[in-house]
Nucleic acid binder design. Structure first.
Lengths: 151, 151
DNA sequence: TCATTATTGCGAATGAGTCTCAACGTGATC
DNA sequence: GATCACGTTGAGACTCATTCGCAATAATGA
């Protein structure tokens, strides 16, 4: 857990002329304490925090999810149509990919270091600074293959 | 080109109780005639067809892009924030992945068969019917790394 | 402690994508 | 090849995730 401390976040923010805020710390630690493979949409995060008595406005949540994804702290996932979900971006042993049923959105997570290596090599080769690398597999799950309901 | 004929599309549609329409044929052949690595959003496709004198309503375009993606004929890509783009889904020698700058959206395409194999194997192992397999790399391009503009 | 200015929260605005429904056209049947 | 059932289209209204604008607030560096 906690592969990225709030102290490190503060340092990185300040380095770029930005500021650490209680809201940012709350968001970071919330994602760090999520169980592995768990991800949240902006709305869900807002609800979760409300339940814990820590209200953060939806605008602020949207702004910071985007910011932290662009810093490489969070991964932005599109597992279901119509809304983005976020999870903490973890290094090699915990890093994983997603296999998604396009009909029912059932998702299987899997790990594969060779894919991660391909991604890292490709980014380096092109002079890009790597933030996230995800193999996204769209498919039809066994249940949906059997169902009559088409597409 | 034309890895998927409109006759084959008609057959597959009819098999499921659906119908071939001139609009569907137009959309399919438009994507087939696009140069490699070119992709279109719904709006762009609508404009392109309008220029060619073939008007298809935006609703119909949205409906069919989604349908054809779920049939595995098109790939759905999210290369820039806020809108989906589509390209023809081609097999092994033409199949490719994307490296994207999260700041300026500059995109590099690359091929890697081993990644495709990992995807196919994972889908099979879980009993899923594979539709598309894309390695999505989010990164910061050399130009944006140098620019002052943050995140 | 103070000044600067990034950040927050609220509500309004945006816009990609979906829905509704009447008119139309495809494909199966005879 | 005429008919019928029903899937599809087009137009516009609508949805809702996300962004924007702005005044109030609060981190940071001096």
């Amino acid at each position: 857990m906690a592969s990225y401390s709030s102290t490190a976040l503060k340092a990185e923010l300040n380095e770029r002329g930005w500021r650490m805020t209680p809201q940012r710390e709350t968001i970071l630690t919330t994602f760090q304490n999520l169980s592995e493979g768990m991800h949240l949409s902006a709305e869900e995060l807002c609800e979760l925090l409300k339940e814990k008595g820590e209200n953060i406005s939806l605008s602020t949540i949207y702004r910071n999810l985007k910011l932290m994804a662009r810093m490489g702290i969070l991964r932005e996932l599109e597992l279901a149509e119509g809304q983005k979900r976020y999870e903490i971006n973890q290094p090699a042993p915990h890093h994983h990919h997603h296999l998604i049923c396009v009909r029912c959105n059932k998702t299987v997570e899997f790990k594969n270091d060779s894919v991660l290596k391909v991604g890292a090599k490709m980014a380096e080769k092109s002079g890009y600074h790597l933030l996230d690398c995800q193999l996204l597999i769209h498919a039809v799950c066994p249940t949906c293959q059997r169902s009559i309901t088409p597409v």
